[in-house]
Structure formats: structure tokens, C-alpha cells
């Protein structure tokens, strides 16, 4: 299982790019962190998601 934004998903073995393609995220408006490290956009296709990975997908919202 891979934890993405707190939710456990059965997507181990997929790349970040493959996972993102199954979502509605606008790739220009998000940033991805895997196990505490940034995954640069250029590496989405090469980064394999492994069992136990902890992934955060974030974007900007209003704030002070």
C-alpha cells in the first residue's frame, strides 16, 4: 500500500506519473513529496511508488 495524502492506495509499482494520470490534479499546480523528499516534475515518470511509501501532493490555497 502507498499512503497518498493520508489515504492508503493499492498502487505500489506504479510511477508517480502513472498515479497522477488517474487523478484530476493539474500537474502545473501541484508539488509531490515522497518520504519527505521532493519529487521534481522531471522525475515523475522515473519515480516508482513502493509499498510503505508516504506521498504528499500539495498545492497553493488562500492563506495569511
Amino acid at each position: 500500500m502507498v499512503k497518498i495524502n493520508g489515504e492508503k492506495l493499492n498502487i505500489a509499482g506504479k510511477t508517480v506519473a502513472e498515479y497522477l494520470a488517474t487523478t484530476n490534479y493539474d500537474p502545473k499546480r501541484i508539488a509531490v513529496e515522497r518520504n519527505g523528499d521532493i519529487v521534481p516534475k522531471s522525475q515523475y515518470g522515473d519515480t516508482l511508488l513502493c509499498d510503505g511509501d508516504n506521498v504528499e501532493v500539495v498545492s497553493f490555497v488562500g492563506g495569511g
Binding site: D26, R29, F60, V61
Partner: peptide, 17 residues
Amino acid sequence: ITLAVRRANTKEQENIL
């Protein structure tokens, strides 16, 4: 202008940017 960073929402298509 200040912004915050939060977990992205798959349902929301609008982005503050």
C-alpha cells in the same frame, strides 16, 4: 500576496493561482 500550502484536492478544479 501570501498563500498557504495544503494537500491538493482532487475534486477542486479551481486554483488560487
